[in-house]
Each structure stands twice: as structure tokens, then as C-alpha cells.
């Protein structure tokens, strides 16, 4: 068993000119751990997630990733080719808006199979079988394999996006408000599914949400952000049941009913 962190984040800062995106964020993420980043709109959650996932270049600070070969690599020093390979094999990224993470004009099967094709799988029958299997795992009937996501409901699209990300067996998944655009009943089902998959696959995940109920259901640990700074972090139950910072207390008392 590996007892080394998957991700080591140190002093991560992103400035938009003079405006703070996120400032001086440090934490370790452990294998199998789900970390929630919560805070109100504009607090820097998306900025932080983008810097962590190399979609945005940080102004200063470092993010080290524990590669499959056991070495730690500073992510900003990866070559473009290495970075993109990592993103489509060892990582997943689930967007709030499924249209940003799916190819809306190709079939569900091709959406799910794309990563396999990208890493060199060349047997159509096997790719289709794997896609079909993953559709079932995210509770989409394999009979829909040739339908385009345009014909899917919001919840199905989101599950399709998850299948598309997980087919290569990533170790780390980033999610930005994964239930953001969904109806409450649909949200609950998606959260159950994500929780089950994360547990079964032993995934590590970093989930951005403004919804403390989502953090409660999914995460082991959480960080509370305000004005770009992490003002409180700890085990999810501890933070939600016994918030220490006045701001967190306000956040919890005003919103939380789980």
C-alpha cells in the first residue's frame, strides 16, 4: 500500500492582474481521498481547480503529482505531450456543463470509447464492448450506445461524461460543480452513483461545489474558501458539525440542512 500523497500542493497562487484568483493554497491529497472545495461564488474555487488540473497556469507555487512510475513530477514542468497524456489517461475532468466535456455530435459509444482509441486501441469490437460495459456502470442502457448525447437528459449526459472519463482507469478525477445544473432528485441519484464509483475504484477526487450537502455526501475532507484564501480545512464531518471560523459557521448555519 502506498502511503505517499498523490498530490502535493504548495503555496499555489493565481493572480488575474491585481485581482486575487486564489492565494497561497497548500494541501496534500491522499490516494482514495475525496476533497471538497467549498465557498460562495467568486471565492476562487474554479480558479484553484483549474490551476491544480493544469488547465490554467499558476502565478506562483507548485503542484507535484505522484506518477504511476512512483516519481513525483512538478506539473508545470511537464512537456505539453506529457501533460496531455496524463489528462487523458491518469486523470479525469468532469465539467459542470456536460456539453463542455462531451462531443455532442458523436454517439455515446464513441464518446466513451474515445480515450481508448486515443491511447492506441485498434479493435472496434473491444472498444464497443468496453463502452457498453461503462454505459451500464453509469446506469445508461447499452441500447442507447449509438444515440448522440443531444438526445439525453441532463442527468444522463452527466453520467455519460463520467463514463467517458473513467474508462481508462484514472487515479485522480477533478469535478467542477458536477451536479450544478441538475434537478434535485436527479442530483441525488448522480451523487449516489459517483460515491459508489469513487469507492469501488479507489479514486481520488477533488470536487468543487457551492453546495455543502454535496460536500457532506461525497467528500472525506473539505476546504472552505473565501476571497481566494483557504480559511478552514479539515475532515468534512468535523468542519460541518463543528466549524471553527466565523465565516464557516455562517455558511453552515445559513445553508446546511442535511
Amino acid at each position: 500500500m502506498s502511503v505517499e500523497p498523490l498530490l502535493k500542493v504548495n503555496g499555489l497562487t493565481k493572480m488575474y492582474g491585481a485581482r486575487i484568483g486564489c492565494a497561497d493554497v497548500s494541501f496534500d491529497l491522499w490516494p482514495g481521498e475525496v476533497l471538497a472545495i467549498v465557498g460562495e461564488s467568486g471565492s476562487g474555487k474554479t480558479t484553484l481547480l483549474s490551476c491544480l488540473s493544469t488547465r490554467l497556469e499558476a502565478t506562483s507555487g507548485s503542484v507535484e503529482y505522484h506518477m504511476r512510475d512512483g516519481a513525483y513530477r512538478e506539473l508545470s514542468r511537464l512537456t505539453e505531450a506529457e501533460r496531455r497524456f496524463l489528462m487523458r489517461t491518469d486523470w479525469g475532468f468532469v465539467h459542470q456543463n456536460p456539453a463542455d466535456g462531451l462531443r455532442m455530435t458523436v454517439s455515446a459509444g464513441a464518446n466513451v470509447g474515445e480515450r481508448l482509441m486515443a491511447i492506441g486501441h485498434r479493435r472496434y469490437g473491444e472498444i464497443r464492448e468496453a463502452a457498453s460495459d461503462w454505459l451500464s456502470r453509469v446506469e445508461i442502457s447499452p441500447t442507447r450506445i449509438d444515440d448522440q448525447p443531444r438526445a439525453f437528459s441532463g442527468g444522463m449526459r452527466q453520467r455519460l461524461q463520467i463514463a467517458r472519463n473513467l474508462i481508462t482507469g484514472p487515479r485522480l478525477v477533478f469535478m467542477d460543480e458536477p451536479t450544478g445544473g441538475l434537478d434535485v432528485s436527479v442530483q441525488a441519484r448522480l451523487l449516489d452513483l459517483v460515491r459508489g464509483l469513487v469507492h469501488d475504484l479507489g479514486l481520488s477526487a477533488i470536487v468543487v461545489t457551492h453546495d455543502l450537502a454535496v460536500a457532506r455526501l461525497l467528500s472525506h475532507r473539505m476546504m472552505v474558501m473565501k476571497d481566494g484564501h483557504v480559511i478552514e480545512q479539515g475532515l468534512t464531518d468535523r468542519v460541518l458539525d463543528d466549524p471553527r471560523e466565523p465565516y464557516t459557521q455562517l455558511l453552515v448555519s445559513s445553508i446546511l440542512q442535511v
Partner: peptide, 10 residues
């Protein structure tokens, strides 16, 4: 190959 996949699927 996504394009060829679509072709075969269809």
C-alpha cells in the same frame, strides 16, 4: 478513429 468508429457503428 472516433470518426471511423462512428462509421462502423452507423
Amino acid at each position: 478513429h472516433v470518426k471511423l468508429y462512428e462509421d462502423i457503428a452507423r
